[in-house]
Write a protein that binds this DNA or RNA. Structure first.
Lengths: 232, 232
DNA sequence: TTAATTTTATATGTAGGACATATTTTAATA
DNA sequence: TATTAAAATATGTCCTACATATAAAATTAA
């Protein structure tokens, strides 16, 4: 029975203007490359100071929605959906819950990615992965040093994202790395230690070479078991 | 042999200040709730005008890194990794490639999500899903109207994200909806038409009730076949 | 003394003007 | 005609002033 008090929406002018400009762009079907009205014109039409407009545009510029050149003015660009995330994806900034969500997200992505890998894998990719696995197997440090193991773990899985052929997915994973790294060190060392009977990187490469997307998916799920078993 | 001329990075002051402030927060291990130096103090220490500082802070405010109250000043908040994306996740703003990436991302998520569903499903969830499926089956409009079919499709899959227990994942899907909706209408109607022999929503619910995460994963993959088969 | 009220101080929010800077356009010159 | 110089213009940066909300201090009432 939460009888909430009405949250008075005292949205700042900047936020309102930001929304209005975005609406304006959507409604008028602005295409990439089109030029926007100048700051002063926007300010006048909106009835606010140029400062407010500039703050709003600064935000949109950060998101990649617009770009600006000195005398030319401002024009539409294709927004980068990850540019916002990129700035704050840092264990020192994120809360515990967000970190957990992101860690789970990575598990979900790697299991679900299988189909893309099989659609887009190239022979050269298999060669590259095998090279990583071989290097890992022959590195004596791997037995003793957790950091080394982690480095190989990351290198291997990062390449899988690259193989997915989905640039957004790939970039997303690369900015997930700090969080991933942090969470792995939080978990007990067991996580990075290959367990008897579980799926190794080598097994995954073999499945990628001669197996099916179906098999790979289950093998990856198996490979990630130590992480999944920590969830609740 | 593209002999590019070095692109002199004339990063705007705002961008530089934004980075410096973020670094400052990370290095000094600012915790959620801590208060920041005031705008004028920041401006003086950084050697820039208050305007520049305000634009930078406006960006950080948008990302949820900081919040500000009138006389209290500014303080750290837990950033919302999705707030940036939320604003620009719109078919009218995104480019074709980004849309494709996002659509694929959804497929990946739904297949990979299986494990989370089985870890966190509750009896009430199954009941709710069954209710959706029954309603869909008894709706005569479903046979003829594409929009109706799409609505049920979205309602069903949206609830799965909700079940995942991962708030970030859930919010992400909800802002994916416009893109999803758009892409589905681009695809031929066949996509939304249940094919003979393929996995239906009802089958998925049944698997969720009495099956395993393993089975559900493959059934979901099967259910999404029409979309996967369009990839290359 | 304590509680309620008013006042004051302060940091953010908004406005508007001024000049710097880069670059396109135009004009002037060789 | 080609080259060079000047002007025009939109963004980038700085400055000052004032509005506004509110925490903190001071005042008054009980």
């Amino acid at each position: 029975m939460s009888s909430k008090i009405k949250p008075i929406k005292s949205v700042s002018l900047v936020e309102q203007v930001e929304q209005r400009i975005l609406e304006f762009l959507k409604e008028n079907r602005f295409k990439s490359g089109d030029s926007l009205p100048g700051e002063i014109e926007l300010a006048e039409n909106l009835g606010v100071s140029r400062n407010i407009v500039r703050e709003s545009l600064s935000r949109l510029r950060m998101l990649g929605v617009v770009e600006s050149k000195k005398r030319k003015g401002m024009f539409i660009a294709e927004p980068d959906i990850l540019s916002g995330i990129e700035r704050i994806m840092d264990p020192d900034l994120l809360g515990e819950e967000a970190m957990q969500h992101i860690f789970e997200l990575r598990l979900v992505l790697e299991v679900g990615m299988s189909e893309l890998l099989f659609i887009r894998k190239k022979d050269s990719d298999i060669v590259k992965l095998q090279e990583i696995v071989d290097r890992e197997a022959n590195d004596p440090l791997c037995k003793t040093d957790l950091q080394t193991r982690l480095a190989y773990e990351i290198e291997f899985h990062s390449y899988l994202y690259k193989m997915s052929g989905n640039g957004t997915l790939n970039r997303f994973q690369s900015m997930l790395l700090p969080v991933f790294h942090f969470m792995m060190q939080q978990e007990s060392k067991a996580a990075a230690e290959p367990k008897r009977g579980s799926i190794s990187h080598n097994d995954l490469v073999e499945t990628l070479r001669n197996g099916t997307a179906y098999e790979f998916r289950e093998n990856m799920r198996n490979h990630l078991t130590p992480h999944f078993s920590k969830l609740s």
